[in-house]
Structure formats: structure tokens, C-alpha cells
Amino acid sequence: MEINFKESLASLRTQTPLVHNITNYVVMNFTANALLALGASPVMAHALEEVEDMAALSSALVINIGTLSAQWVQGMELAMTRTLALQKPIILDPVGAGATPYRNLVLSQLLSNASPTIIRGNASEVQAIAGFSGHTKGVDSTVSSSESVDAAIALSKATGSVVSVSGATDVIVQGEQVVFVDNGVALMTRVTGMGCSASAIAGAFAAIHAEPFEAAVLAAVCMGVCGEIAYETAQLPGSFQIAFLDALSALTPAQFAEKARVRY
């Protein structure tokens, strides 16, 4: 597999895909800014009365279960059903999977409603959905991404989805195909919304790329490369968040290709 990083980033910025996010209160602003900085167009719409119409207008749907409520879950189900019917990509971020019975029930309902194109989460979340033993610490992972490869493969086979696992090394899986992305810095784990933004950016790349597996790799590399660039000038969480958005905006296609550290 050979991914054209330069062409993919240039294409995203030319097409400016509209990414529909039904996401959590905590990260809405940062996620929207990340999409804008990269060159995509965000919309945050969760009202039952409009989610189906928004799905028709958008190029991809991102579902994030970080802050759950009954009405939002209904909206997620409606949007997923409509997006599936329109054959557009669906990205599911299973925030906190395994933490509570209710959260697990919601995930079961969503997965039975429509198989996501990409499932993107941390190692504990992926293990929980796949039925492997493991524990979450709220919404944080208690295991490394390298420990989740078997769970990711099992989950990919069960759902037909590409599974992207974030960590010190990101792991992207489709069936038996596995790719490792070594980009990124540890400080990214200390800024709220980084993982949620990674899911939104996966939605942006999936919107313009015919291959979901490659779109997931592109998103993981993009996040990691921009984290590395941001860390060159900002080593504390507050300034790093701003520097990260600036890095997304300033990222050139050449940098994207040159700095990618991908193992096939």
C-alpha cells in the first residue's frame, strides 16, 4: 500500500468537505477549529429535527459518545441510518467504552444500527467493544495501543469497519491488514479533545478518499505530525493547543509526506 500524502492533503483543502459532528460538549469548539484549520468545514448539529437533513448535506458523519443523553443518542441513530442509506462514511468515536453499563448499551445500539466506516478510539475502548478484558479510567486508556492489536483485528472482522487505535504508536487495522504510525508526542494526551479531533479529521479524510483504511492512516499521521510541529514551540498544554491548531493550518503537503513515519 502506498499512500499519496501530498495529493490527499491538497485534495482535502480543495474540496473542503462538510463534516457533520454529533459530538460532546467538552470538545465542540476545539474540534470545529481543528477541522477549519486543516481545511475542512465543520457543523455541529444534534437536534432530532435536523440531523437527517444535515446528513444529506454533509460529506461524512462523526459520532462521538463523550457526553451522552437519551435525545442525543436518538439523533445519532437517525443520522447514522440516513448517512448509511446515502453511502457516506461514518466515523464512530466510542469515548469511555467499558466505563459504564449505559455507555456499553448505547454503543451496542449504535453498532447494530449501522456499521461504521471507521471506529477510532484508544486501546481500552477498542478492547471493551471487542469483548476483550480490559478497563478504562473514565475516558482514558489503561493499556497501550500495541496491546490492542488482536482486539482491533477481531473488532474489524466483526463489524467490517476500519479500526484506528490511538496511542504512543497508532495502530490502524482492516481485517488482517495492520499499519503502525509512529508520529506524535506525549503531551497530546494532556490536552482535552485531541482524540476527538482525530476522529473528526478521520471524517474529513474519509470524505475525500475512496479507501477508508488509507483515510484512517492519513488522519493518524496528520495528528501526529502536527503534534510534533507544535511541540517544537510549545511544551505546555495551553500553548500547545494553540500551536497545534496553527500547525494544522500551516501544514504543507510536502511536510505531510516527509514527516510521516508509517510502518506497513
Rank of each mutant, 00 (worst) to 15 (best):
G66W: 01
V51F: 04
E50M: 14
L92D: 08
T67M: 12
A40K: 05
W72G: 12
P116Y: 00
D140Y: 00
V139K: 00
V19L: 11
P101V: 12
I65S: 03
T81Q: 14
V51R: 00
V126R: 00
L105T: 13
G96Q: 08
T16V: 15
S115M: 13
Q71F: 11
A123I: 06
I22W: 03
T14F: 12
L35V: 06
V143F: 06
I22H: 05
L57E: 12
K88S: 11
E147N: 04
N21Y: 11
T142P: 03
A114N: 08
V126D: 07
V51K: 05
L110H: 02
E147C: 10
V51P: 02
H135P: 06
A114T: 01
I90Q: 02
N29M: 05
I22V: 08
I118E: 00
Q71G: 10
S144D: 14
A130K: 02
G75C: 09
E77C: 14
E50G: 11
Q87W: 02
A47V: 07
I91L: 15
A128F: 08
S133P: 10
H20S: 09
A114Y: 08
G131K: 06
G39A: 04
V149D: 04
L107F: 11
I119C: 07
G75A: 12
D93L: 09
L110Q: 03
R103T: 06
G66H: 00
L111D: 01
V73E: 02
T142Q: 13
A97Y: 11
L18V: 05
T81C: 14
T136V: 15
V143Y: 03
V51G: 04
L48P: 04
S69H: 10
V62Y: 06
L92V: 05
A55D: 13
S133Y: 15
T83R: 07
H135V: 14
M80Q: 11
T16N: 12
V19I: 14
V126Q: 00
L86M: 09
R120E: 14
S148F: 07
A97F: 12
T117A: 06
A47S: 14
M80H: 07
G138L: 15
A151L: 13
Q71S: 13
S148D: 08
L110F: 03
V43K: 06
S141A: 15
E77T: 13
S124C: 14
V139F: 05
M76L: 09
S59G: 15
Y25L: 15
N122R: 00
H20Q: 11
Q71D: 11
M44G: 08
L48W: 01
G66S: 01
I22D: 07
E147F: 01
P89D: 09
T23F: 00
S108P: 11
N29Q: 15
A85C: 09
T23H: 11
S112D: 14
I91F: 08
L48C: 08
G121V: 08
D53I: 12
R103N: 13
I90G: 06
V126L: 13
G96D: 07
V106D: 07
H46C: 03
L92I: 09
P42N: 01
W72S: 11
W72F: 03
E50C: 08
A99S: 15
G121W: 09
L48K: 03
G39H: 01
M76D: 04
S41L: 04
A85D: 13
N104S: 15
A79F: 07
S58D: 14
K88E: 09
V51T: 01
M80T: 02
